[in-house]
């Protein structure tokens, strides 16, 4: 897909609730990077700085009976689904109150109909099964699965596309195409396009090049309804930008590429377009996250009884 010139256009005003969520995710991710820098977190993590608007836009299009399958870069997906930054941070830090008792960590969360896994592509067949389940038992519900551009190298993607199209399943595949698979640019890892690959299976494809939440919802609402009620699987490809590293300290991109991404960051664009609304919300969410970090950091380690 082409470069999203649209993101440079002045962003229209978003609802306070949406802006709060965008900023919550942003400050949550920045706090994680800070905690890592200070040696307060174990293991690894992947932040979605720059991509926050994707799950925020989709939030209004998804309901409680829908499944959401997330990936390694899933904090935004979780926070858009559950207003639970405390539980997620506790999970990542292995503290009391963790969503999965600290067993899952950053990228393996299971809560109700939300499932994340770090291995690329493997959630697609599972989402396909969940979609088949929903088609039979809860018509009108769908399974939404988030993947990246790099995921399209995995064979499991195509087994799932084939099954979903063949069996007419309510499967919504959201591609966060940020142009880079860890350190490998799309042009070095993908032959052809996401669009043509989806179309080869008779699956519709829709491209999104803006970070304007209302425009995204307006474009997607009728298409998502068709996924739900007509069993027409859909691939939605967001052209987006990852501002941070893949994980931590592993950003191999030349500075001008990162600068290019930063210039298209919704955060700066929105601050410029709506300074007063932004400043208030930004400060409030920054303070909220700081308080959560303080609270969760002081909690005892999470525990579990494997024999319970």
């Amino acid at each position: 897909m082409t470069e999203p010139a649209a993101t440079l256009v002045r962003l229209p005003r978003a609802a306070d609730e949406d802006l709060d969520l965008l900023l919550l995710i942003r400050h949550f991710e920045l706090a994680l990077l800070d905690l890592f820098g200070r040696g307060e977190l174990n293991g690894t993590t992947h932040t979605c700085v720059g991509q926050e608007y994707v799950p925020v836009a989709l939030r209004r299009l998804l309901g409680e009976t829908d499944y959401v399958f997330s990936n390694h870069r899933g904090h935004g997906h979780y926070l858009a689904r559950f207003d639970d930054p405390e539980g997620l941070l506790a999970e990542i830090m292995g503290r009391e109150g963790a969503v999965c008792n600290g067993v899952g960590g950053s990228q393996h969360i299971l809560r109700d109909r939300y499932v994340s896994t770090g291995v690329q592509g493997e959630s697609l067949p599972v989402a396909t099964g969940a979609a088949l389940h929903l088609k039979r038992t809860a018509p009108g519900a769908l399974a939404c699965v988030y993947i990246g551009d790099g995921t399209w190298g995995e064979g499991a993607v195509y087994e799932a596309l084939n099954l979903a199209s063949l069996w007419r399943l309510p499967l919504l595949i959201v591609v966060e195409h940020n142009g880079i698979a860890q350190s490998t640019p799309t042009a070095r890892q993908m032959a052809g396009t996401v669009r043509s690959r989806a179309q080869a299976f008779g699956v519709r494809h829709h491209g999104i090049e803006t970070s304007d939440l209302n425009a995204i919802r307006h474009e997607l609402a009728p298409l998502v309804a068709e996924v739900r009620f007509e069993g027409r699987p859909l691939v939605v490809e967001f052209v987006t930008h990852r501002l941070g590293p893949h994980s931590k300290g592993d950003d191999t991109r030349p500075p001008e590429v990162v600068e290019h991404a930063r210039a298209r960051d919704w955060y700066g664009l929105y601050a410029e377009a709506h300074p007063e609304q932004f400043a208030r919300a930004d400060e409030a969410q920054r303070a909220r996250v700081a308080a959560i970090v303080q609270d969760v950091s002081a909690r005892p380690l999470s525990g579990w009884d494997p024999c319970a």
Binding site: E122, G129, L132, T137, A143, N162
Partner: peptide, 19 residues
Amino acid sequence: TPLAESGIIGTAIGLALRG
């Protein structure tokens, strides 16, 4: 099913998640 072992087992997991 199609010839898709990963798809078969993955689909089964999705089906088993709720019942």
